[in-house]
Structure formats: structure tokens, C-alpha cells
Design a protein around this nucleic acid. Structure first.
Length: 460
DNA sequence: AAAAAAG
């Protein structure tokens, strides 16, 4: 399928062509005709597969053809609002579409003046938008299309009340569009009350909400080893740009300082920064002047930055959806990406829960070259594991192999532990006879030759 | 519980 089959207004079609778009992505192919038909829509698609254009193109097509006069897009963060407005501007500039961002931290005057002057698309964050509606400053907006970008987030607690209030100011006979990579069932149910006879389309697999072009790994560490682990990973991974996600703003500040002190090209981003600083940080990062961005979940959703090869979770996120969106900052527009998560033994259960709920495929990894991270962390884990009942086969193997290849043995133990956790049985960890035999056959012979074992370790 | 979003 080609973009010209949508019969866009010629100026919109030109924008599409200049942008270099060839074939629509699956979400675009499915969503565009539905939006053109005027129906309400809930659209779910993997991170980085072109959701902005999926709603932006038909919306601007209608503006260009004079079928509607104004549209409103609501996003959860200021950075995302800016990005969406920029993308819409670029796609719609040949049709002369007038776009404006509306968010806090900057003056009111310009925003109000431009709305009255007659913008066609307003991209806003909820706080300032609600503020302007309450003050009666933007009654003239009256959008005929309203898009909730990152819709599940916008309808979750924390945003829901503001969104509801905003909708009170908007005419009922509007077209409402909801987009996100994640759409938990309760939110979908809630959405039905906000929408009118909506279509639901999803191009994510039944059980897989993480984009499968992203390679997902996790490392087992001690709580005290997070910094050490991140530094080692930054040194060993072939990163271009990367994002390191932290849970708290002060964690972002502290880690950024730490990395800067070590000579890394890093900067921090979170909601307590001055608006001017937020803009400076994200601009420098987009340009590639800063290679490492340390951020809270302010950067988790929607941001589309070129050449982000790696996403690191310094801590696991608070909820599974956040994991999906965070790692979705890489592996965009058909490119691959690496997602690396640090977990302590105590966080295993939580990581399994995330893995299961979002249908992610993660594998346990160890840092190459013996940073001290592996041995210490795996030994620490083994301590935990050793306190648990271990079956006889495993006990024998530990005694026999214990001094030959501790790393390998512990790795195996960890895997067993995880497997039990996943199956939720957990009472006894251990290897089956088959595993024991295989390991003895492969590694048992090295017991006599320490040279051999050293050589093997080097190879890996 | 964190962060986000108005000032």
C-alpha cells in the first residue's frame, strides 16, 4: 500500500512525500481511513511505529480540505507536546497549517493571542489547557477533533480529573481519538464512556506490547552496585545516544553529577528543572551534543530521538506500562535497539511481573571481562539461593563444580531461581539430572586443568 | 509510592 491511496489534499500529500514517507505503517494503514470516516477511535501500536502521523495526517487533511476548522492534541509532557507540534508542522507546512503548543512554565500572553488569531492545531499539556479554559481565555478554540496521545496515561489517575474537566469545555459533537502503545483493559473500558461508538484497532500482538526489534537484557546486581554497573555498561556497550531512566528526580541529579565527574557526556532531565533548562537539555540531546540523558519518566513516553541505541533502567519502573514506553525510546522506525535493566535479587519478582504482564522477552546477562560486578552480584544472589532448599542433584553439582567455574554455576542457579519464580512454585530450587549430566560432561573435565579453564573464560 | 501537569 502507498500513501497516495489515501487521497490526501495535494499539499498534505506533498508534506508526506518531502518527509520521505513511502509506505504507511500498519497502524497508519488501519487508522487513517477510520479517522477520515469521522469515527471515534482507540488505536494501539508498538512504540516507534508512527502513531503521530497516523492521527496527524488525516486530521490535517481535513483541515486542508476545510472539513474541519480546528483540532486539539493533548500529551502528558511538555517535551512531547513540542515534538508532536513540530512533526505536525513539518508534515502540514505546505498546506499552511497553523500549529501552536500550549503548556506551563512559559508566559500566557503569546498562547492566548495566537489562539485568538486563529490557529488550527493546538498541542497542549493538560494543566495549562485547563487553566486557560477556566479563565475563559480560549472559548474560541472549539476543536472538532480531539486526540489523547499516550491515552492510557491521560486517562489514568493523576490526569483523569483534568481531562474530564477539559472535555466539559469541548463540544459533544467532536471526533475523539485515543492512541498509545499500551492500553490496559480498565482504561479501555473507561474510554468507552468518553468516546461515541468507537472503533478499536490494535496492531500489537496478543501478548506482546514491547516492540520486538528491541533486545532486552537484565543484570543482577547488589543495591550498592548500580553506579558501578552503569559505568561498566557505558564503557563496554557500543552506544551512540542512550537514556538512563531513574525513578526519582534527585536520583537523576545525583547520577548525572556522578557521570559528569567521571568525564561522561551526560545531562539530566526531570520536571523540577526550569522550563528553559528542559528545552536546552532536550535540544542538545536531539542534536547529539549530549550523548547520555539521565531522566525520570518525564522522558518515558513518546519522545522520538534519532540514534538512541540503548535504554538503561537504572531502577525498574513503578509500573509495567512504563517499562514498555521507556524501552520504546530505542528501536524506532524499523531500527533495532538495546534495553538493559538493572535489578537486585529483591526485585526479581517485580521484574517477572512486568515481563509477564507486558509480554516482554528478557534474558539474564552478565558483564563481560569480570568487572567484579558479576562475581559479587551473582555470589550475593547465590547466598539468597543457598538459604533456600536445594535439591540433591544441585547440591552434588555445587560441591563438585564449586571451585571450577563459579560464575557459570551461579548463573545456572540464578536461572533456576528465576524459572521457579515464573512458575510461581518456588519451594525447592535445583537442577534436574539432565542438566547435571550435561554440565559435568562439558565442564567437569576442566577440574584437573586450571589452564584450560582460564583459557575458556577468556574466550567468552 | 514516583512523576507528570498550573502557579
Amino acid at each position: 500500500m502507498k500513501f497516495n491511496e489515501f487521497n490526501f489534499h495535494r499539499d498534505i500529500a506533498k508534506g508526506v512525500k518531502i518527509a520521505g514517507f513511502r509506505e504507511p505503517s500498519p497502524i497508519q494503514e488501519m487508522a487513517i481511513p477510520i479517522i477520515e470516516s469521522g469515527k471515534d477511535l482507540v488505536g494501539q501500536a508498538h512504540t516507534g511505529t508512527g502513531k503521530t502521523a497516523a492521527f496527524g495526517l488525516p486530521m490535517m487533511d481535513k483541515l486542508a480540505k476545510g472539513e474541519i476548522e480546528r483540532a486539539l492534541v493533548i500529551t502528558p509532557t511538555r517535551e512531547l507536546a513540542t515534538q508532536v507540534a513540530d512533526e505536525l508542522y513539518h508534515l502540514g507546512r505546505f498546506a499552511g497549517i497553523r500549529t501552536l503548543t500550549v503548556y506551563g512554565g512559559v508566559g500566557y500572553g503569546r498562547q492566548i493571542a495566537l489562539i485568538h488569531k486563529g490557529v488550527q492545531i493546538v498541542v497542549a499539556t493538560p494543566g495549562r489547557l485547563k487553566d486557560l479554559y477556566r479563565k475563559g481565555k480560549i472559548d474560541v478554540l472549539n476543536p472538532e477533533i480531539v486526540v489523547l496521545d499516550e491515552a492510557d496515561e491521560m486517562l489514568d489517575m493523576g490526569f483523569l480529573d483534568e481531562i474530564k474537566e477539559i472535555f466539559e469545555y469541548i463540544p459533544q459533537n467532536r471526533q475523539t481519538l485515543l492512541f498509545s502503545a499500551t492500553m490496559p483493559e480498565p482504561i479501555k473500558e473507561l474510554a468507552k464512556h468518553i468516546l461515541y461508538q468507537p472503533e478499536f484497532i490494535s496492531v500489537v500482538g496478543d501478548e506482546e506490547t514491547t516492540n520486538n526489534v528491541i533486545d532486552q537484557r537484565y543484570y543482577v546486581i547488589n543495591e550498592s552496585q548500580r553506579d558501578e554497573a552503569i559505568v561498566k555498561l557505558l564503557e563496554t556497550e557500543k552506544t551512540n545516544k542512550c537514556i538512563i531512566f531513574c525513578r526519582m528526580k534527585r536520583e537523576v541529579d545525583r547520577l548525572t553529577e556522578h557521570l559528569l565527574a567521571l568525564g561522561f557526556n551526560a545531562s539530566g532531565l526531570h520536571g523540577d528543572l526550569e522550563q528553559q533548562d528542559r528545552e536546552t537539555v532536550i535540544k542538545a540531546y536531539r542534536r547529539g551534543e549530549t550523548k547520555i540523558m539521565v531522566a525520570t519518566d518525564v522522558a518515558a513516553r513518546g519522545l522520538d530521538v534519532k540514534d538512541v541505541t540503548h535504554v538503561f533502567n537504572y531502577h525498574i519502573p513503578f509500573d509495567p506500562q512504563s517499562y514498555v514506553h521507556r524501552i520504546g525510546r530505542t528501536g524506532r522506525a524499523g531500527k533495532s535497539g538495546q534495553a538493559i535493566t538493572l535489578v537486585t535479587t529483591e526485585e526479581f519478582r517485580e521484574l517477572q511481573r512486568i515481563q509477564k504482564e507486558v509480554g516482554a522477552e528478557m534474558r539474564l546477562a552478565t558483564i563481560q571481562g569480570g568487572s567484579g560486578l558479576d562475581d559479587t552480584s551473582l555470589e550475593y544472589l547465590a547466598e539468597q539461593v543457598r538459604d533456600m532448599p536445594i535439591n540433591k542433584e544441585a547440591q552434588n553439582l555445587i560441591e563438585y563444580l564449586g571451585n571450577i567455574d563459579k560464575e557459570l554455576l551461579l548463573e545456572k542457579l540464578v536461572s533456576c531461581f528465576i524459572e521457579k519464580e515464573q512458575q510461581n512454585v518456588g519451594s525447592q530450587i535445583g537442577f534436574d539430572q539432565h542438566t547435571v549430566d550435561a554440565m559435568l560432561q562439558e565442564y567437569g573435565s576442566e577440574k584437573k586443568s586450571s589452564k584450560n579453564s582460564q583459557r575458556r573464560r577468556k574466550r567468552r
